[in-house]
Each structure stands twice: as C-alpha cells, then as structure tokens.
Amino acid sequence: MNIFRLTGDLSHLAAIIILLLKIWKSRSCAGISGKSQILFAMVFTTRYLDLLTAYISLYNTSMKIIYIGCSYATVYLIYAKFKATYDGNHDTFRVEFLVVPVGGLSFLVNHDFSPLEILWTFSIYLEAVAILPQLFMISKTGEAETITTHYLFFLGLYRALYLINWVWRFYFEGFFDMIAIVAGVVQTILYCDFFYLYVTKVLKGKKLSLPA
C-alpha cells in the first residue's frame, strides 16, 4: 500500500458516499444516470467475486463489501425508492454498445483464460467506460447539480491517483499490470473534459452548464 493508492481508495469511497447521501438526503436522483450506476454495480460484482475465494486483508475485504453494498443501494434508490425522480428521458445512452465490446475484448485480451480472470478483466474494461452514460446525460441536460460534479470529481480523481500508484509500484516493486494501466489511462482521459469544466467553473462558484 502507498499513499497514492490509499488516497485513491478514499477518493473513490468519498465519491460513492457523496452520491448515496445526495440521493438519500434530497430524496431525488435527478441528473443521475441510473445506467452508469448499474454498470458500476456490475464492475464491483464481477471484480470482487474473489471475496469468496481469497482473503487479502481486513481493509481489502471491508472496502469491497462497502463498495458493493453502496453501489447496489444506489441502484435500488434510483430504480425503486425514488423511481419517480429518475430522469429516464435524458438517461438514454445505449449501454449495450459498451457491455458487448467490453465483454468481447475481455475474452480476447486477458492475462489468463480462466473465469475469475476474464470476469476481472471485464470489470476493468467496463469501469473505464462506465461513466459515459452519466457524462452523456449531463451533455443532454446541459447542466449538473454541484453535488453531482463533486461526485464526478472524486470518482475521476481516484483512478488518476491509481495511475500514480502504478508508477510508484513499478518503480519500487517492479509490479505492473498492463490491462489495468491502459484501462485506467482511458478512464482518466474520459474525465479530462469534465475536470477542465470543474476547475474553471465549479471551483469558482459557478454552476456547471455545458453549452455556455
């Protein structure tokens, strides 16, 4: 464990908690893409199956359980409890265009052709593009609530910190995982446009609105 991976995990946890609290306290999921949240639940489910087979540390196990629990709770709040506030008309990204290619690629490019490894690879590739429905929805509505931009900021920051973690581990431990690194770079690049808007607008107290 290094400081970059730890702050990355805490940033990820912060994003997940911010979103869950935003929906729970405002009793509304307006502006939130339910499709992205379903994809994140798929990412955690396919990646953390090793909860059943391997014990790495209390930290590792507890964080995985928290991530899975919060992501399913968020999906439940969006599609069940606060379904009336779900903005389905703007959450129209065709997720099959993400899941099918990602599924195919995880069979073609992986470290080991075993079920657990292919599912892990699928989750890595899927996480790289899982935010697209949310970014697409914001481009359609033309704006995002400030709390949603903070959620996106911490979510994007977490994988950017992981990139630094991988540089650190390569240098100090000789460890690297090309699949995770390439997917992580793609994932972080997808946030660049948002990061620019977040820094130039939201951090200056303005609302995040796109066409302007």
């Binding site: 991976r5 995990d9 790495i56 540390s57 590792n60 991530y67 470290h111 460890f175 090309m178």
Partner: peptide, 10 residues
C-alpha cells in the same frame, strides 16, 4: 520487472 498476479488492489 515481474508482473505479480496477486490482486491486492481494489
């Protein structure tokens, strides 16, 4: 460098 396969990252 060796590519350790133990998945210890989240």
């Amino acid at each position: 460098p060796v590519k350790k396969k133990r998945k210890d990252e989240l």
